[in-house]
């Protein structure tokens, strides 16, 4: 059981992709979660279905759809290419795949958190002089912090583990798009690669466990603050 350069590269890439995916997806997921929790509009159920689609589709299909939309000669891909952003077969594409796959989990956790906040408390804040933005930052946001945290951890974990959509969309290029799960799968394809695969699987478990412990610790701190402990 040894970890070679390929394994460390894959870990680095996975962490890099997962961090980017989480950072980009959290504000977006927060916005969508807020809309779904608090707004009534025509097409709400459609938006909801769209957000949840990657959860129910086979990941390969999601990857394929991304490929169709964002390959360099597809309209969306071509448009992004003009601003110098290429997604297909790049780590950036892995980020997109991770965002799309983790999005339903993030939105779900955050939406539940929004729904748990009594709008009457927000009303009370408004009568005390707080503008809508102040109400959001000083009342709503602190109250949903645990939900944001839970959603972020789930999104991060999903990004670390994403396989099907990623390999379909950005293939398997060592150092470029070969994330840790893809590297494990690759090692298993080579006779005698089991030891390497086992080492990387262990690495993957370690990272996942670390993320869980970190989030538990953060959640406790947030919960303490919400409970109003001095």
């Amino acid at each position: 059981m040894t970890l070679d350069a390929v394994a460390w590269d894959a870990l680095r890439l996975s962490l890099w992709v997962a961090v980017w995916a989480t950072v980009i997806a959290v504000p977006l997921a927060l916005w969508i979660a807020w809309i779904l929790a608090r707004k009534e509009f025509w097409g709400k159920s459609l938006l909801n279905a769209l957000v949840h689609l990657p959860l129910v589709l086979p990941p390969v299909v999601t990857g394929y759809v991304l490929l169709v939309l964002f390959s360099p000669n597809a309209p969306a891909g071509a448009a992004l290419a003009t601003i110098g952003l290429t997604l297909a077969f790049k780590w950036t594409g892995a980020v997109l795949a991770a965002i799309v796959m983790g999005f339903p989990l993030m939105v779900r956790a955050m939406r539940l958190a929004f729904e748990a906040v009594d709008p009457k408390i927000e009303d009370a804040a408004a009568t005390l002089g707080a503008s809508r933005l102040s109400v959001f930052t000083r009342v709503t946001l602190p109250l949903i912090a645990p939900g944001i945290l839970a959603g972020s951890v789930m999104g991060f974990a999903k990004a670390m583990g994403e396989f099907g959509a990623t390999i379909t969309f950005v293939a398997n290029i060592p150092g470029q798009t070969q994330t840790l799960p893809i590297a494990i799968w690759t090692a298993l394809q080579i006779p005698g690669g089991e030891g390497k695969a086992a080492a990387m699987a262990l690495l993957s478990c370690t990272v996942a466990l670390g993320a869980v412990f970190l989030s538990e610790w953060l959640a406790r701190r947030v919960a303490l603050r919400i409970a109003g402990a001095p």
Partner: peptide
Amino acid sequence: APHKRRFGTVFQDARLFPH
């Protein structure tokens, strides 16, 4: 908007900020 009216309101359920 409510925040510009400046009517301090006390509701039946106190509606304190729990955090």
